[in-house]
């Protein structure tokens, strides 16, 4: 009985802040303004504008996830080799920017990348032509990678640090070169961390609208921006909810991948 009481606050929390909002989204997504059932809000994803935003979102999230993976894996390997002391210090350095507000960090990139921003000012000093960096897909990817990289590093570092040195020694002992050891031992053993990292970068990257607002300007619309605008400017909660549901399907697919590869939950850093 007492154990049930203990879970009370969490049950209330779940109902109030997860179940009810989800139910509301589901309700709005499947009805029109008069309250009648409709699939039109879902089907709206097929319109050229929305589909373009969705594909662009998927493309940019995928690109930034791959960038994060390529940057994070070697770093995690270095951290593993450093051992506990130095390794955790470097991890700390990596997490340090996360103590700053997410918006501020992204705004900082805005001032760096602007036409008359810091980087172009520096280029002018060197008598180099100014570069058009802000309001490009590349700027959005940069913002995503910068903000989400720690979420890729930590789960991969977490699984790598659990691999016993002797497991690697055993592979070398049995004749494997360092490349073969990486390919046959380290990489397969770190798959749970990679999957977890991909999920933790891909999902927020797919749904973000702040990064694309600040670094993509008004011209590049991601699906997150479209949904945001339906709620704020367009006041069409029904369409916004319908598109959110579509986005959720993509996130569920990503979650399903995790459940498949990460059976032991080893990759969960948080």
């Amino acid at each position: 009985m007492s154990k049930k009481l203990l879970s009370g606050p969490y049950v209330l929390w779940m109902i109030g802040f997860t179940i009810i909002p989800l139910a509301l989204i589901l309700y709005y997504g499947l009805t029109d303004r008069s309250g009648a059932f409709t699939l039109a809000n879902i089907m709206a994803i097929a319109t050229a504008e929305h589909a373009k935003a969705l594909w662009l979102s998927l493309g940019l999230s995928l690109a930034s996830t791959i960038c994060c993976l390529l940057l994070a894996y070697p770093l995690a390997m270095v951290l593993r080799a450093k051992g506990v002391g130095a390794g955790s210090f470097i991890v700390f350095i990596f997490i340090l920017p996360m103590w700053m507000n997410f918006l501020l960090r992204t705004l900082a990139w805005q001032t760096l990348l602007e036409k008359s921003g810091v980087i172009n000012g520096f280029l002018a000093l060197l008598h180099l032509p100014p570069q058009n960096m802000i309001n490009t897909p590349a700027a959005i990817i940069l913002g995503m990678v910068y903000n989400f990289l720690p979420f890729m590093v930590l789960p991969i570092y977490n699984v790598l640090s659990k691999i016993d040195d002797n497991t690697i020694n055993a592979a070398t002992d049995l004749g494997a070169s360092s490349l073969q050891t990486f390919w046959h031992i380290l990489l397969p053993l770190s798959v749970p961390g990679i999957i977890s990292g991909i999920n933790m970068v891909f999902v927020p990257a797919l749904t973000t609208f702040v990064i694309s607002n600040l670094l993509g300007g008004s011209k590049i619309l991601l699906i997150g921006n479209v949904i945001e605008q339906e709620f704020t400017k367009g006041s069409n909660w029904h369409l916004g909810s319908g598109l959110s549901l579509v986005l959720m399907i993509f996130i569920l697919i990503s979650m399903a991948l995790i459940a498949k590869y990460d059976k032991n939950g080893e990759g969960n850093a948080f």
């Binding site: 016993d164 002797n166 497991t167 020694n169 055993a170 592979a171 070398t172 002992d173 049995l174 004749g175 494997a176 070169s177 031992i185 397969p188 053993l189 798959v191």
Partner: peptide
């Protein structure tokens, strides 16, 4: 000579099997 070029093998303390 690196371990992978030696004509000997090792049985490690905690077995160090490849769990995957």
């Amino acid at each position: 000579l690196p371990p992978n070029k030696r004509q000997l093998n090792t049985v490690f303390q905690k077995y160090a099997l490849f769990t995957h």
